[in-house]
Design a protein around this nucleic acid. Structure first.
Lengths: 217, 217
DNA sequence: AAATAACCGGGGACCGTCTCCCCGTTTAGA
DNA sequence: TCTAAACGGGGAGACGGTCCCCGGTTATTT
């Protein structure tokens, strides 16, 4: 009776090195997407991952599949960072700060392709991950608002978009020397988020859905 | 004796429509570079400018020449915005705010290619324009610092880089619907710049020179 | 430890895209 | 009106990305 079980395991579970390679590809792709945008040649991703190009094309039927996997994985990492922040028992604003800095380290800017035109925005995996992230981030922010530490006129998308923008490597520079000043700028932005608000904000809050719709030219 | 003068003028001054077209190309290129990066096809720039592709290649011997012209023009516009801010007689921090919002409208994020690896960073035109911008921005900031309104631990490059990053269109989105929230985020950042500083800043200030050097991978 | 099947990696063909020139036509300036 | 400068569109050539093929390698099973 045991024969059926290893048989099933063999079918459903790929070889260990295959799994390892897939993970390395996703990691490499995350860095490459952040540095060079979602159009980076897949051969370059393969080289960075230390695998042959065929391994990339075997694991992901097309570019979108890889992008989707990267986006999902980054959303997971971001969500975990938010959970960690929520687990903090101390100062609510400090938790928010920790979350923002952590999400930069988790390459939250890799989420940008999510709103790209050539991308299936409504893939079920994405919907689920996005909902989870938004809920957790909202919780982090609400707690800080309730404590009277976070100004009330900012929303989840304000935080996510600004964090992504500030943590992107400056255009044209392939380097990640960015780390030296990214956290400075994030900290300045966070200081601007503190209650009481020092000025009134122009414009309107933009939801993630707003970003997706009217884009493609 | 008059013959020599129109002859000289004729040599040195191109036709009026040629000048107009050149200007339209630079304008179109600025928008395209901001939206799609400095590698955007030149034929697309030509189409956006409403001219034939040959006109682009006639006016600019290579891509770098066009990029350089765009960068110089944006630095000029930014410098003018800083001069305008300095001309304000009122509140020094308000002048700084006006400058930051204006530089976003002037597409300061188009300056990013300036630190790209494949770009002659030391072209004399660039050096001059950059020096002028840095001097003027420093003056705007120093005035606000002297008035005790701007925190002392931020530098010119902090402001320029963060403004460029926050005013870039989010990666992957060709749209400039960004305008709806860019000024919000800039305002939040500006609020964080106000004295007294609410927190200590991590990391170190980065000069523009730092950005240029260790980049290319 | 040997057998086996999954997996890997590099090379190369195909194909789309960008660049840049050519040349007949248009238009500014005198 | 005349002339020369400038324009625009089409297309050749080259470059680079994608994706497949196949001989070699490695994990896994007994």
């Amino acid at each position: 009776m045991q024969t059926a079980i290893p048989d099933q395991r063999k079918v459903s579970r790929p070889r260990a090195d295959a799994l390892r390679n897939r993970e390395r590809i996703v990691t490499a792709a995350r860095e490459m997407f952040v540095e060079h945008g979602p159009d980076v040649p897949l051969d370059d991703v393969a080289r960075r991952a230390g695998v042959g190009n065929a391994t990339v094309y075997r694991n992901f039927p097309d570019r979108d599949a890889l992008v989707r996997e990267v986006v999902c994985s980054v959303m997971d990492r971001t969500a975990r960072a938010a959970e960690l922040a929520l687990a903090e028992t101390g100062d609510a604003f400090e938790a928010l700060e920790r979350f923002v800095h952590a999400s930069a380290d988790e390459r939250i800017s890799a989420l940008c392709p999510m709103v790209s035109s050539t991308f299936d925005q409504f893939h079920p995996d994405l919907e689920a991950a996005r909902e989870r992230v938004e809920r957790l981030v909202a919780e982090v922010m609400d707690r800080a608002k309730a404590a009277g530490q976070l100004r009330g006129d900012v929303g989840v998308s304000d935080l996510m978009i600004a964090a992504a923008q500030l943590s992107r490597p400056p255009a044209g520079t392939g380097c990640l020397s960015a780390d030296r000043f990214v956290h400075r700028h994030l900290q300045l932005f966070l200081d601007g988020l503190r209650a009481p608000a020092r000025t009134a904000l122009p414009g309107t809050q933009v939801t993630m859905e707003d970003l997706r719709r009217p884009c493609d030219q």
